[in-house]
Design a protein around this nucleic acid. Structure first.
Lengths: 357, 357
DNA sequence: TTGAAAGCGCTAACAC
DNA sequence: GTGTTAGCGCTTTCAA
């Protein structure tokens, strides 16, 4: 007779209702057995769980549950370009680490959403079952627009910077970059090269595009540092499409083959700086004897390789952003817009020194 | 009058039904406007979208959609210990990278599910809205059990190895480890130390626990290499709770302070090896002059630092596993269980050489 | 092409 | 402590 108790449910997987029928209790009781164990007697709970096991029922369907409770217990994250690039940059990994840790602490999952240009897959954003979004180092593009169109809260990290009514976490880009530029200038360097992720063509006299706001801030930091020096300073700015090892390497090759070689190469990320160092090493250029090199982010590997860099609290940035998001989601988005700017700190190591002769 | 068209929907957010009412069309038409643009005229679609914009409707609710279609367009991933550790190991990051790339190619999101021992949060597994799971380098614990209880397909990567009826992707651990051990023995080393993630106490004569199957395979590889050498070989095996820089460092300190110091330290991961190198450098021990060091995984940094290692296709492993999972999910889990073993390759660099005198 | 009707599987009031 | 009822918001046959 056993099998006939199971309602007319022969096809498909068993549902909570089937378990209830099989156990001879109501659906509520089964639901409570899974979600509020304290709301029913232990014996009854065992009964329900046994019935579930017998039927091969493995617990409430997550999607149905999410629809009903209107929460997914997950945080969405979109980040610049494709996921591939993101995992290549140690600073991005460190950020992710911070986010993941916050998620772990608050019992949330972390949904990584491809937001790459290859597939203009905005649909992935619209279809993500999450309670809110982290927007990390993105251009102000269609993906960001899709995120902000959704009713869930969002927190922007680093960029875009030109969205006023959304929580923001970032660093003092201008001050941080000024400090490393000032350091190099104080060492006596007067022929500098900047290697950066940024616009294809950089006209130092023109206005900056908002889409490169971080780049803009750093250039303003550079200007401030240079303004504090009485001498003439020669500056070349070389930009590439990503903040990667390869770009650092390629720009260095171009730099060292050019007519006026710099005595210091200041990079806007450690990833770029490692590429610079690799190219210089291959060319037999001594660092810092012939050329000084500096990075930005101060990832773990920077210490290992003696790279002068600007430390930023990358891990904490991720952690804080995720907590801000979860708090806002919990409070149903009430409260004033927050804007948190985290400090940076110059870390001088062996890769920077006085210019030759 | 405008606002009064909106049914009795004053409270809460607008739904698809509200948009339909406002636009004067059926719910089907609104749904089609978002999901099947080719199923209705462009004009009608514009009408619907305009109504949606007017109401502040940002598209179908993902959870309701998922419930109805029974698919989440997402892949779940659980990995060893807590997320924190995972992001610290470059090999794990590379694996993630491969998974992320496959997800991007197939228009899926990637849900990272905390499976850390701190919070025994099995509920996160049961509540994840995903179409299938990747189980990466896990002990055969309650989390894995929770994954396998769910009706969605799963693919196991690396471990656990003792689950027969689930798709599996791994490498030839025994052969790979044998090759690096043989290399060190051929160089003439006869006093070896193995530094590994593994069981607390390792009794070389005892049976191995299944929970350390990878460790077991590698020890069998070691034995095979040693068996091919006529001389007596002295071997110390030192294990730690994780495969990290810190463990490598600590075990090396213990090793170098012991009575019989090895002439070669063979590690089961590059992360461990970097820790070993850090400790040796601090002690002023020359590598490979006094002690040779080898790693496993051949992460990018291994090449930079001249570490002899065993390369494995870490990125491809992630990519392949994700594709296998998506294919199985697409075919509704039909078909025979797959088992893919990927090749490894010894990469000899400067960190290994003949023993002293 | 478009519309009407029928649930997807679940939880949370509320009554008992 | 347990059951009844009423949807959560959507997609999808099917018929028009």
């Amino acid at each position: 007779v056993g099998d006939f108790e199971d309602t007319a449910q022969t096809r498909g997987r068993p549902t909570l209702a089937d378990v209830a029928a099989h156990a001879g209790v109501s659906r509520t009781t089964v639901s409570n057995a899974y979600n509020r164990p304290d709301q029913l007697s232990a014996a009854r709970r065992e009964l329900v769980l046994a019935a579930a096991a017998e039927l091969g029922y493995s617990g409430p369907d997550p999607m149905a549950r999410s629809l009903r409770t209107r929460s997914a217990d997950a945080v969405g994250l979109i980040f610049s370009a494709n996921l591939s690039v993101a995992f290549s940059d140690p600073a991005a990994v460190e950020f992710l680490h911070g986010v993941a840790q916050a998620c772990e602490e608050r019992d949330r999952s972390l949904l990584l959403i491809p937001a790459g240009p290859p597939a203009a897959n905005i649909a992935m954003v619209s279809r993500a079952a999450v309670d809110g979004f982290l927007i990390y180092s993105m251009p102000n593009d269609a993906h960001v627009e899709a995120v902000l169109a959704r009713p869930q809260p969002a927190v922007i990290v680093d960029s875009p910077t030109d969205i006023a009514d959304v929580d923001y976490v970032g660093i003092d880009d201008r001050g941080g970059f000024r400090s490393v530029c000032a350091h190099v200038l104080e060492l006596g360097h007067r022929r500098l090269a900047i290697v950066s992720h940024g616009p294809d063509e950089y006209d130092p006299t023109a206005e900056f595009e908002l889409s490169h706001a971080v780049f803009r801030e750093r250039m303003l930091g550079l200007r401030a540092a240079v303004a504090a020096v009485p001498d003439a300073v020669d500056i070349q700015v070389r930009t590439g499409p990503t903040s990667s090892h390869d770009v650092g390497r390629a720009q260095t090759a171009a730099l060292m083959d050019s007519a006026v070689t710099p005595t210091a190469i200041i990079c806007t990320s450690d990833a770029l700086a490692f590429g610079v160092l690799a190219e210089l090493t291959e060319r037999g250029v001594r660092v810092p004897g012939q050329v000084s090199v500096t990075g930005f982010d101060d990832v773990a590997a920077a210490a290992d390789r003696g790279l002068t860099s600007v430390w930023q609290p990358t891990h904490e940035k991720g952690h804080l952003a995720a907590l801000m998001l979860l708090d806002r989601a919990a409070s149903d988005q009430a409260g004033a817009v927050q804007r948190r700017i985290l400090p940076t700190r110059l870390v001088v190591r062996a890769s920077s020194g006085p210019p030759p002769d």
